[in-house]
């Protein structure tokens, strides 16, 4: 129970499921975007959890730690992955909110629905 991987895993799974529940039950675009954000956070947490190793140290080269002791370092790559995916998530959320505002301007509502007879351009 005290294993952080377990806690992280539970947390990640819970976040993803809450997000999925939100996506499945809401029509409101703002809530959809929030739910998707939750799912993304969940999956980021999952990456961190999946690459956790017990008893390793931060991979920072210094006086104490050097290349010879590299075996006791944590893998730095997942951090890079998570950082990248957080940045991408930010971009997606920003664009989605911008689109939402434009949608609101056009239709006067935030509900996602399909209109078939809308005007189209070339």
């Amino acid at each position: 129970m005290n294993n952080p991987v377990f806690l992280f895993g539970i947390g990640a799974f819970a976040l993803m499921m809450i997000g999925l529940y939100g996506v499945l039950t809401h029509k409101n675009i703002f809530r959809l975007i929030l739910s998707l954000g939750l799912m993304e956070t969940g999956v980021n947490l999952f990456i961190v959890a999946a690459s956790y190793w017990d008893g390793v140290r931060a991979p920072i080269l210094g006086k104490i730690f050097n290349v010879k002791t590299a075996d006791s370092y944590a893998d730095p790559l997942p951090q890079a992955l998570v950082l990248t995916s957080i940045v991408i998530g930010l971009g997606v959320t920003a664009l989605a909110l911008a689109l939402m505002i434009k949608y609101r301007e056009g239709t006067g509502t935030l509900e996602m629905e399909d209109k078939r007879e809308e005007e189209v351009e070339e």
Binding site: L24, E111, M112
Partner: peptide, 12 residues
Amino acid sequence: SADGTRLGWSFV
């Protein structure tokens, strides 16, 4: 695709 909720459901 008639409304937002079904998009998620289609994925599931």
